[in-house]
Simulated scan of single mutants.
Amino acid sequence: MESDKELENLVKQMMDEVPLEAPSSNFTHLVMQEIQLQKSSVRYKPLLTKTHLMLTAGIIAVLLLYGFMDGSGSQLTSGAYWEFLMNTRSWFSDRIPELQFSKTLSYTVASIGIMVCFQALILKRYFNNRFA
C-alpha cells in the first residue's frame, strides 16, 4: 500500500513538471491537407484486366466450339468452317436436345438459387434496418 502511494506521488510530480502540449494554430488545416493527399493517392484498378477478360472469353469460345463439333475427327476447312458457323439453325437445334443434366446437378443449382434468394432477402432487411 505504501509503495502504491509513493508511485502515485511520483507520477503526479512527473505530470506536474511536464507542460501540456498545445497544437499549432494551423493544425486542422495541416490535417485536412494530409487527408486530401491520401484521398487523391488512392487508385482503383480492376482485379481482372482487359487482357485477362479477352483471354478468358477466347478460351470459353474455343471450348464451346469444340463441344458443338461432332466427334468424327473431320477437319473443317476455312470455307466449311464459316459455313458451319453461319448455319446456326442446324448445329444449334441438333445439339441442344443432346444436353442432359443429372438430378444431382439440378438439385444443386436449385438449392443454390434458393439460398441466394433467401440471403438477398435477409441482407436487404439487415441493411434497411441498419441505415434507416
Rank of each mutant, 00 (worst) to 15 (best):
M1F: 08
M1D: 14
M1G: 06
M1R: 06
M1L: 10
D4P: 06
D4S: 05
D4K: 10
K5V: 11
E6H: 01
N9A: 01
L10F: 01
L10M: 12
V11H: 05
M14L: 14
M15P: 04
M15E: 14
M15G: 10
M15L: 13
D16Y: 03
E17A: 15
E17H: 13
L20S: 10
E21G: 10
P23F: 05
S25N: 09
S25H: 10
N26T: 12
F27D: 11
F27S: 09
T28P: 02
T28A: 10
H29K: 14
H29R: 09
V31T: 05
M32N: 03
M32Q: 11
M32S: 00
Q33N: 01
I35Y: 04
I35E: 00
Q36G: 02
Q36E: 14
Q36F: 08
L37I: 06
L37P: 01
Q38T: 04
Q38V: 00
K39V: 02
S40V: 06
V42Y: 00
R43Q: 05
R43T: 01
R43E: 03
R43I: 01
Y44Q: 09
Y44K: 12
K45H: 03
P46A: 13
L47I: 08
L48V: 02
T49G: 13
K50D: 00
K50F: 07
T51G: 02
T51I: 08
L53P: 02
M54T: 11
M54Q: 12
M54N: 09
T56G: 01
A57I: 04
A57V: 01
G58I: 02
G58E: 10
I60G: 07
I60D: 11
A61S: 12
L64P: 03
L65N: 03
L65G: 06
Y66I: 04
G67L: 09
G67D: 14
G67H: 09
F68S: 00
F68E: 00
F68I: 11
F68T: 03
F68V: 03
M69W: 09
M69R: 08
M69K: 00
D70E: 00
S72V: 08
S72L: 06
S72R: 07
L76D: 02
T77G: 08
S78P: 09
S78F: 09
Y81V: 05
Y81M: 08
W82G: 01
E83L: 06
F84A: 03
F84H: 01
F84P: 04
T88S: 12
T88P: 06
S90V: 07
W91D: 01
W91P: 04
F92H: 07
F92W: 13
S93L: 10
D94G: 03
R95K: 13
R95F: 15
P97I: 06
E98H: 12
E98M: 11
L99R: 02
Q100V: 10
T104H: 12
T104R: 15
L105V: 15
S106P: 02
V109L: 15
V109N: 08
V109I: 12
A110W: 06
S111P: 00
I112V: 15
I112G: 10
I114F: 13
V116N: 00
V116S: 11
C117R: 07
C117N: 12
C117H: 05
C117V: 15
Q119H: 12
A120H: 04
A120F: 03
A120I: 05
L121C: 14
L121E: 08
I122M: 12
L123M: 08
K124T: 13
R125V: 10
R125S: 01
Y126R: 15
F127V: 13
N128P: 04
N128A: 08
R130E: 11
A132R: 13
